[in-house]
Amino acid sequence: MSDVINLNLQVWRQENENSDGDFHYYSMKDVPVDISFLEMLDILNENLTKSGVEPISFDSDCREGICGTCGFVINGVAHGPMARTTVCQLHMRHFKDGDTLVIEPFRATPFKIVRDLVVDRGSFDKIIQAGGYVSINTGNGPDANSILIGKEDAEEAFDSAACIGCGACVASCPNASAALFTSAKISHLLQLPQGQVEERARVKSMVDKMDDEGFGACSNHGECEAVCPKGISIKNIANMRRSLIKSIVK
């Protein structure tokens, strides 16, 4: 434990979906720089509990950056200042002594605030339900090697499929658009022969669902790619648009 820093935190607190929220101010002393951001909040919550205050609600699970459960906005940037990093993997060594950190939940109309920093991202499920799958029942698959997929195609499909569904793309988008999330799934499947069968119906249905859920339209700010913990490219959004044009023209 080499170094410690002091921090001023300004944290959004909101009782439930319908109540008004506001900022609460906490000062943190001697935060070890080797711990993660969520471990820092764990310490704060311990202190709050001990002083009889309800701890701050925030979501997290795997704390390895893969489950997509955690996430909030630190000083106006989703998942904080480090690229390709979820807040659970963000370590305090990236902050300076005396920093003031404003912590807000992911804000978007379809992401209802459950409490404090916890939001409900169930609307992502609805988008996937609209076609983010290959329509095949268990047991019907042909031998795995009967479908040939070039190494590069497989790699590109993987790049799209790597999405963890954390919602940072929506949170960081000035329009609260879910284009990156939606297009990552569309793009993953359209790059594979298994997924191409249903491409036309899928793209139309998923795009419509994305709009119905109340997400905004993508106007190419590219902020989503910058905050995406998996670095998912806006190329996927272009793929989605091309696919949509194709589905209309055909």
């Binding site: 290959v134 047991g139 795995a144 090697n145 790699e155 499929a161």
Partner: peptide, 22 residues
């Protein structure tokens, strides 16, 4: 063995060789 067939059919992007095989 059935699991692999099933997952590939679902579009799980398993690692491939240059020849396109798993």
């Amino acid at each position: 063995t059935n699991i692999i067939d099933q997952c590939v059919a679902q579009g799980v992007p398993f690692a491939r060789d240059y020849g396109g095989l798993l």
